[in-house]
Every structure is written in structure tokens, then in C-alpha cells.
């Protein structure tokens, strides 16, 4: 298969798909620092994170995280290994609830509601805030069943599943490649196709936000490029938060970038902290913190 040809496929199939109600203004103004001020009325906040601190079995993994994430933007978390970026990402859809020993302190407001409030159902949180993982992790089921799984558990009618699956696969730019083998095992797909299947699976439950945890780290450069193109399209509809090791990737896909690092805390243990959060342009061209500069210019990390 020729990569160039299929990349045009993606653009075509998704560009038809643009919903009319999306405010397109925001990403035009990337690079203008004023637009990102907290009190700016044009930005619709999805997450408002304050004093976030996460512990594993009593050990602080990351602390003092304050950031806000806006709707229909791509926000990237970058930083060296062990800086807590994945830990923060997993707190955004309450994935830590499923790991014994993980405790989340501080406040995460999601559209103004406390994500960890007592009346909030974690399953509903995860339906609205989907996740794509580092390693493609399709279920050992057919391609169709992988995509249909989410809608099915959320009570969609059996007769609607065909349309839902086609729609999700189309939006994930995978439909043309798999439409003739929907009953085949998802594990027979290539790594890049599996990851797009996982994106289709996430889209199929109609989430609001998609969290991506180093989605391209297990993929080759061609598959990576296709996922990045896909992200640019998906951002018209979804809010995307991506954790990445790859600084070029952050600079290519993200509107805003948060730089995390790990430092020794008062107790002498390594702990993740948020160093700087700003427009991607500013982070990569004129970072205000020397640690950020050190990282992006490759002096450490």
C-alpha cells in the first residue's frame, strides 16, 4: 500500500465530515499568547485542574499541577520518563480508580463539575472521556465487534450497530481498508491499523474528549504520520489530550503544550511537577523556564 495515496484518502473522507456547529476560530490564532489567558471568553474550558496531586501506594508520583484544557484543541503533555505526564492523563478519565493503591488529590473540574464528586459515575466519565493507549490493544474479537463493543454496552440497539460501526471506522480513516473483512480478527491488522481501530472504537461511543497515551510510540513513521493527520481532523469534533515522548510530534499536532519534569521533593524522592504550560509555539520558540528550554533543546531528558 502506498502511504501517500492513503493519506489523501484520510483527508477526503474526514473533510466531508466536518460538523457545522464547530467554532473554527480558535486554532487560527495559535501562537498569539493573549488568546490563552484563563479569563478569555472565547475559550470553552473542558478541564480545569487545580492543585492536582497523585500518589501510588503513598508515594507522590506527581504534584502541584494546575492547568486548563480547552475544547476542540490538541493539548500535549511532554517531558522525560517518570515525570508523571501519563499519571496526570489517566486521572482525567478516572482510570486510576481501577488501579489499587492510586489516590488522586486536588480538583479536576470537567465542564465545571468535580470529576471526582460523590455523585459522579466513573463509568459515565470514561464513556465521555475516551482513551487510546500506548500499545494498540484491540480486543481479541472481530473488527466489527471491537467497534460495536462500546455502543453495545451503552445500550445502543442492535439494528443501529452497522451504521455506527461504519461511521466510526470512517471517521478513524480505516473504513476503506477493512470494510470487506469486518468479521476477521482485529489481531490480524497491522500495528497502525490496530491503533486506528482503537481510535474508531473510542469514537464509537461518542465521547467528548479523547485522551491519547503515547499513541504512536509502538508505530513506524508512516503509521505515525497517518495518526497525526487523523488527530488534526478529529480535533474539529473532539478535545484531544496527548502524552508524547516525541517533541516533534507535539510541535506538529498540539495547540498547547504542558512540559512536565521530575525533581527531588522535600522527602528526597523523585516526583513529577508541571514546569510550564503555554501555546505550543511559545513553548518551542521562547520558553520562559530554563528547564523547558533545556529539555526542548536536548540538553537533558
Amino acid at each position: 500500500m502506498q502511504p501517500t495515496a492513503s493519506q489523501t484518502d484520510i483527508v477526503e473522507s474526514v473533510s466531508i465530515d466536518t460538523p457545522s456547529g464547530v467554532e473554527n476560530g480558535i486554532h487560527l490564532e495559535v501562537g498569539n499568547p493573549e488568546i490563552f489567558q484563563r479569563d478569555d471568553a472565547a475559550r470553552e474550558l473542558v478541564f480545569d485542574i487545580e492543585k492536582l496531586k497523585i500518589l501510588y501506594s503513598g508515594v507522590v508520583a506527581v504534584a502541584d499541577v494546575d492547568l486548563d484544557i480547552a475544547a476542540r484543541e490538541v493539548t500535549a503533555f511532554i517531558g522525560p520518563s517518570g515525570c508523571g505526564k501519563t499519571t496526570v492523563l489517566r486521572s482525567l478519565n478516572r482510570m486510576h480508580d481501577t488501579t489499587p493503591g492510586a489516590v488522586v488529590h486536588g480538583k479536576i473540574l470537567y465542564h465545571g463539575e468535580d470529576l471526582y464528586g460523590s455523585r459522579i459515575d466513573a463509568a459515565e466519565v470514561r464513556r465521555r472521556i475516551g482513551m487510546v493507549f500506548q500499545k494498540p490493544n484491540p480486543f481479541p474479537k472481530s473488527i466489527f465487534d471491537n467497534v460495536a463493543y462500546g455502543p453495545k454496552i451503552n445500550g445502543k440497539k442492535r439494528k443501529d450497530l452497522d451504521d455506527l460501526v461504519e461511521h466510526a471506522l470512517t471517521r478513524a480513516a480505516l473504513w476503506d481498508e477493512v470494510k470487506d473483512k469486518l468479521k476477521r480478527s482485529a489481531l490480524a491488522l497491522s500495528g497502525g491499523q490496530q491503533q486506528r481501530l482503537c481510535i474508531a472504537r473510542a469514537i464509537a461511543v461518542e465521547p467528548d474528549v479523547i485522551l491519547m497515551d503515547e499513541p504512536c510510540s509502538a508505530l513506524d513513521p508512516i503509521a505515525t504520520a497517518r495518526i497525526e493527520d487523523l488527530m488534526a481532523e478529529l480535533k474539529r469534533e473532539f478535545t484531544i489530550v496527548i502524552v508524547t515522548h516525541n517533541m516533534q510530534q507535539a510541535s506538529r499536532v498540539a495547540d498547547r503544550t504542558a512540559f512536565f519534569t521530575a525533581e527531588l521533593n522535600d522527602a528526597g524522592k523523585r516526583q513529577g511537577i508541571l514546569v510550564e504550560y503555554d501555546s505550543t509555539n511559545k513553548i518551542f520558540t521562547q520558553p520562559s523556564d530554563p528547564r523547558t528550554e533545556g529539555y526542548i533543546t536536548g540538553r537533558f531528558g
Partner: peptide
Amino acid sequence: ELREASYALGARKSKTIVSVVLPA
């Protein structure tokens, strides 16, 4: 990762066990 994939779609634990973990 299979369990997490299921949780991330809004599946509850029992659903995840019955539909994903046990079949696997």
C-alpha cells in the same frame, strides 16, 4: 491493557470481566 480498553469505553467491571476478560 484489555481491561483498561474496556473501562475506557464506559464498561463497568462486571461487564469487562464477562465480555472481555473471560473470553480472552
